[in-house]
């Protein structure tokens, strides 16, 4: 009944929530950003033994806190399961949901969310035991597949097997922990989730080298942060926090050379650091909003490398997530 009571509590929050939708004011009054995070996915959201959170999504929440509260540490992370995450955002328990969430049309509309961009272009893959001698997902006819509940993965899986006229036995778990454990115990032939997460989950099975990730990517999974409908100002702030991190990388502004950037005469950089124009005030923040993000968290590329890229245990190639100037598809609108 625990989950049930959680949902019930969230539901009461929906019912009791006041009419006000002033998220920015609420966050400032509270002095703390409530961030809906993953909690069990290395590279995206995971607390370490000291309770310090790290990850690409965690960095994103820290960037919002830096921009709004001038302190990247003022974030309260709320670990959410895939299943309960939307209810938590709808009910106001969190201000922003940064939990490797796929942007889909129904979530963007009828679930009452607004996606603020894509901070990781991903796709769904499969992990299997090497001993099965499977080289392609198309050879999985008749397999049992473990999957986490409340994800697009769960739906794509049924689509993919249906479209390829293959038989499938799905075993669904409420958390990725349980799903991976069951897969590791031999309950399923394959485990499926977003490819980035597969690399992280592979590190958690008993003998990672006995498992391979199949080459097929069976879906588009644009992962991004989301906010509630009905507060355009907050939507803008969260959206532009992401764009600021990407623009910083494009303009070559990083934690290392920020001081030089402050003295730059390049008009694009001057607009970014706030020595020209009042773009921060237009957002409802102050001039140096973007400087605070880079100073306390870093640009998008730094965050990527540190959490999921070659500087991390996951060692994922940037691929599609390179900037558009470097052959990827990450592209942020300009600040002006």
């Amino acid at each position: 009944m625990k989950r049930f009571t959680t949902i019930l509590a969230l539901l009461l929050a929906v019912v009791a929530q006041s009419a006000s939708a002033q998220t920015l004011k609420a966050v400032k009054d509270r002095g703390m950003l409530n961030c809906g995070a993953n909690g069990s996915l290395a590279g995206f959201g995971l607390p370490d033994a000291q309770g310090k959170w790290t990850g690409l999504d965690v960095d994103f929440c820290r960037a919002i806190a830096a921009a709004v509260l001038n302190d990247a540490e003022k974030v309260k992370y709320v670990p959410l399961s895939a299943k309960d995450r939307f209810t938590a955002l709808q009910s106001g328990e969190v201000d922003v949901l940064a939990r490797n969430t796929t942007w889909t049309s129904s979530r963007d509309t009828s679930l009452g969310l607004n996606f603020t961009g894509v901070n990781y272009y991903d796709g769904q893959g499969f992990m299997v035991r090497k001993s099965l001698k499977v080289n392609s997902a198309l050879e999985l006819n008749g397999a049992s597949v473990c999957v986490q509940q409340g994800t697009t993965t769960e739906l794509n899986l049924a689509d993919y097997f249906g479209a390829n006229k293959m038989q499938l036995k799905t075993v669904t778990f409420a958390s990725s922990n349980e799903a991976v454990k069951a897969y590791d115990a031999g309950r399923c032939d394959a485990y499926t989730t977003d490819a980035s997460a597969l690399y992280a989950e592979r590190l958690r099975v008993a003998t990672p080298d006995d498992h391979i990730i199949l080459p097929e990517i069976i879906s588009k999974e644009p992962l991004g942060p989301a906010v509630r409908h009905g507060d355009d100002q907050w939507f803008d702030i969260v959206k532009w926090t992401l764009f600021a991190m990407m623009n910083a990388e494009e303009l070559n502004i990083s934690t290392k050379n920020l001081d030089e950037a402050l003295k730059s005469t390049n008009p694009e950089i001057k607009r970014f650091v706030g020595t020209e124009g009042n773009f921060g005030e237009q957002l409802g923040l102050t001039k140096e909003w973007a400087v605070r993000i880079v100073k306390q968290v870093g640009n998008y590329g730094e965050s990527f490398e540190r959490n999921v890229g070659l500087g991390s245990p996951l060692k994922i190639e940037r691929g599609l997530n390179k900037l558009w100037t470097k052959g990827g598809i990450q592209y942020a609108p300009p600040i002006r």
């Binding site: 989950r3 309960d84 709808q90 129904s106 679930l111 769960e154 739906l155 669904t172 349980e178």
Partner: peptide, 26 residues
């Protein structure tokens, strides 16, 4: 309803779990 913890598809797992999440209609 604790079935949800061990992956047995009971009412809470299927309906209050996946269906709620997919439709968002808590």
């Amino acid at each position: 309803s604790l079935a949800v913890a061990i992956g047995y598809p009971d009412l809470v797992q299927v309906f209050t779990g996946t269906v709620l999440n997919q439709t968002g209609q808590a």
